[in-house]
Design a protein around this nucleic acid. Structure first.
Lengths: 316, 316
DNA sequence: TAGATCGTTTTGTCCAGGACAAATTGGGGG
DNA sequence: CCCCCAATTTGTCCTGGACAAAACGATCTA
């Protein structure tokens, strides 16, 4: 981070790429076409962005992920952008209060960076609703709420990281202390290389493991060819992929199609997450898991189809 | 992924950037200066790399991280590259066999993607040596061994991911089921934005938590300004940063200096990991943790200096 | 012999501005 | 109302030049 004559922090184009996830080429194209951002230059003519630029770019990126078009957002004034954010608030329908752990309590704990308090709230939800309930009734809605709070500037980057870190810790910890007889199917979990969010993956793993499936998670960012090799090595019945809303549909389609072609027909592909568009279901042998709570159903269907001889009782 | 006339997989420059972590600009500069890689072109004149190119680039990247210079590596023939890899094998000194869980057993489980077997081995090490012993005597040497095995082509990307994922799961799980009275210091754990490896962070967290410190992990990739805010919000006594060997020293120095300036003097900064160069210790108020096993000592020193009134007994 | 100093080379990153194709949009026709 | 096509939008890639930070290595000093 450099500083200008007034001591204000100024960032180079690669720093901005890192912070916002927007490629350098795109940043330069936007400047050329829309006049925003319009960074100052250093002695060598290199761009120096302000942190205001970065904040606005982060905002724009989120709105892009929600379907807005660059032309609108980049030409928009500050006021217009605020109006768009207002309109976006709760656009996906209100998050149903679940009567369990209050969302505000969780948000308060996150704001305080209060590890014990947050763990307590998770623990409470776990006892009241079980592991699957914790994931589908608390964590899933929380992800939405926190994303929106971030958009409105009510939470910062560290708070979001802190939340993600703590949820992952709690879920993994709970999963680790949970053992039951391993039954089919064997599921390989991962994301494509451009997708780095591992929380969705973990949520699916929790749902599957609670039903006794054998999960093998590779974590995020796995090259396509390696997914194929891994699926075969680990004798997987299902390859589960997670896509966040930010993932370009076109890339998801291409990736899943290639994977589908390279995997044996006996291996199912499941895709889930906010970026798992309906059109992915158009590919034969690919199932879209619309909501995290429907994972157990999908699993039951797979078992009914593939394990016709086994009684349900034997599996439970 | 595109395909050429012979059906061979061909990747665009952004795919290669994604797979290897080498920026597009660097790939083009290497082509211009050293003639490698020299990708074919599609109808539009865009570069199409082969998977051999990518494999070699991945190799080169690792060797760069170990201190080799681009000029040597990129001009090297296939045979010369092999010779360098041979030379590199065990260059860091042999990893001491610790008499506990045999490394080969772990590698075998990783190759088979065998989750239960791997967890068993971790569990065994945990029972034989305790949590700190697991981290310092098994996980730390394993990281080195696995990195070297990858370099020699004995392990692939998915195996490395699989290992990382399983270790993290196991450690987090064990940590979650482990409670003891929280005592000072309060430690904030994270990495700078360019550093995405979270395993080192988790290892430190385990060591610290075993000694009763209050850890608050933000996960990897945290912007500098946000680290400052977070440290203050969470009233941290120590900010712990982890650097992998791949992290450029210059950037580490700049980042840590900036952070040091923005944090109150009462907050210590600890840096660790393979990329935590001695020169970082030159900054006042910054401690370099040379090896993971020295974390408890560092903690004891902090307590002796900052909590002179408290008896050791009260802390344990 | 070990270590500091300083010019030279290496190397990563940035720039401009043009090009193109994939994706989206907005009409019109069945 | 749905489908299809042309116009527009938009992300990504290209070349080839430039520059500064880092690494190197030769020279000098204690």
């Amino acid at each position: 981070m450099k500083h200008d004559a007034n001591g204000l922090a100024r960032m180079t184009i690669s720093a901005v790429e890192r912070e916002t996830g927007l490629p350098k080429d795109t940043l330069r194209a936007w400047e050329r076409r829309y006049g925003f951002p319009q960074p100052a230059r250093d002695e060598a003519g290199e761009r120096l962005y302000t942190s205001d630029d970065v904040n606005r770019l982060r905002l724009i990126r989120r709105l892009l992920d929600q379907g807005w078009r660059p032309g609108k957002l980049l030409a928009a004034s500050e006021a217009e952008l605020q109006r768009i954010i207002e309109a976006e608030r709760g656009a996906g329908g209100p998050v149903a209060p679940d009567g369990g752990v209050p969302t505000e309590d969780v948000l308060a704990a996150i704001r305080r960076h209060d590890v014990p308090a947050l763990r307590n709230l998770f623990q409470r939800s776990l006892l009241e609703r079980g592991l699957q309930g914790l994931v589908s009734d608390l964590v899933a809605p929380l992800n939405v709420v926190i994303g929106e709070a971030w958009l409105r500037g009510e939470l910062g980057v560290p708070e979001e990281h802190f939340y993600t870190e703590q949820v992952q810790s709690f879920l993994r910890g709970t999963l680790a202390s949970y053992t039951r007889p391993a039954t089919p199917p064997r599921v390989l979990l991962t994301t494509l290389p451009e997708e780095e969010h591992g929380l969705g993956l973990l949520m699916v793993e929790v749902m599957l493991a609670s039903e006794g499936a054998q999960c093998c998670s590779l974590g995020p960012r796995m090259p396509l060819t390696d997914i194929r090799t891994s699926a075969i090595t680990s004798a997987a019945d299902i390859v589960a992929l997670s896509f966040s809303a930010a993932y370009p549909l076109r890339q998801a389609l291409a990736g899943v199609r290639t994977l589908r072609e390279s995997l044996p027909d006996t291996v199912d592909i499941w895709v889930g997450g906010a970026g798992a568009h309906e059109r992915l279901a158009g590919i034969p042998g690919v199932s879209v898991i619309g909501a995290i709570r429907s994972v157990p159903d999908a699993l039951a269907r797979w078992r009914a189809a593939r394990l016709p001889g086994a009684s349900i009782a034997a599996l439970n």
